[in-house]
């Protein structure tokens, strides 16, 4: 029973997991004494109880309505589903001919519905900018450097074998996006993962030797700009009815550009979360 309550505490974040040693640097939590928070909860209780009750009511109402909706939807897995219509059949039937991609999904998101995907890449770009804006340490509040790199023999030895393999796999996924499952988003995140493992094993210094702030920005912005300009040309030509072969090649080039963007995004998240700079 006691174990269970400890488990509960751990789930609630009250207790450190016994094995975790990474959290030594956490600030003290002495202000969070139990009686303290209880007396405060009493003062807030009137409002929060009403609020909780209202929320529960809304959720109950919503779940009943949505269950009825779900039961009334067209059946799962049938061929008469309204989503299986001329549009999806056109995509499956014509994608290879019109976009040069055997992977219909890649052809669809990068060509037919490419503007959405461009927006999506901009969301990623925007997320990195926001993380940078929030966590970029300005001179005064420089974070403590927690660079474990190169200390762990096992990790660094394993990574010497592992990182090239992961990189190769990532490149494979990236370049074969138009013929098989994969593409820019998945390939880019595998490449980003490889960079992150590399940074963990050999220290941040090892990464910034070849992937400095300038190169990082260059890769990120070039990737997105190539995408934006290429896609802009494609839209301009397409919308004005000018014949071009661009739509057949756009998938490959854009896939690689997206891969670069995603890779730098992943590594950027890691880098800013851990040390607040690149």
């Amino acid at each position: 029973m006691k174990k269970l309550s400890r488990f509960n505490d751990w789930v609630d974040g009250e207790l450190d997991f016994p094995l975790s040693t990474l959290h030594d640097a956490r600030p003290e939590r002495h202000e969070r004494g139990r009686h303290h928070s209880m007396s405060d909860s009493r003062s807030l209780s009137a409002f929060s109880k009403v609020y909780a009750l209202l929320c529960l009511l809304v959720c109950l109402l919503l779940v009943c309505t949505l269950l009825a909706v779900a039961a009334a939807l067209p059946g799962f897995g049938s061929e008469e589903n309204p989503t299986v219509n001329e549009v999806s059949e056109h995509y499956v039937g014509q994608a290879e001919h019109e976009t040069g991609a055997e992977n219909v999904i890649a052809g669809m998101i990068l060509n037919y519905r490419g503007f959405d995907t461009f927006g999506e890449s901009c969301v990623l770009f925007l997320a990195v900018c926001c993380v940078m804006q929030l966590l970029w340490s300005t001179g005064a509040e420089k974070k403590q450097k927690t660079d474990f790199g190169g200390q762990d023999v096992i990790l660094s030895r394993v990574c010497r074998v592992l990182v090239p393999c992961v990189l190769c796999f990532g490149l494979c996924v990236l370049f074969s996006g138009h013929t098989s499952p994969g593409g820019g988003f998945s390939g880019g995140s595998v490449l980003g993962a490889a960079l992150i493992i590399f940074a963990l094993a050999f220290g941040d210094g090892a990464v910034s030797r070849f992937f400095s702030r300038r190169i990082y920005n260059l890769v990120r912005i070039t990737g997105l700009m190539v995408y934006a300009l290429m896609f802009g040309c494609y839209i301009f030509l397409g919308a004005n009815g000018i014949e071009s072969e661009l739509s057949r090649y756009i998938v490959l080039v854009v896939d690689i550009a997206v891969g670069l963007v995603v890779m730098s995004t992943m590594y950027g998240f890691y880098s800013f979360y851990t040390k607040g700079e690149l």
Partner: peptide
């Protein structure tokens, strides 16, 4: 209606 790409509605954006 301005199609964002080569393919007009209902195929493209």
């Amino acid at each position: 209606a301005f199609s964002m790409g080569k393919f007009p509605a209902p195929l493209g954006n």
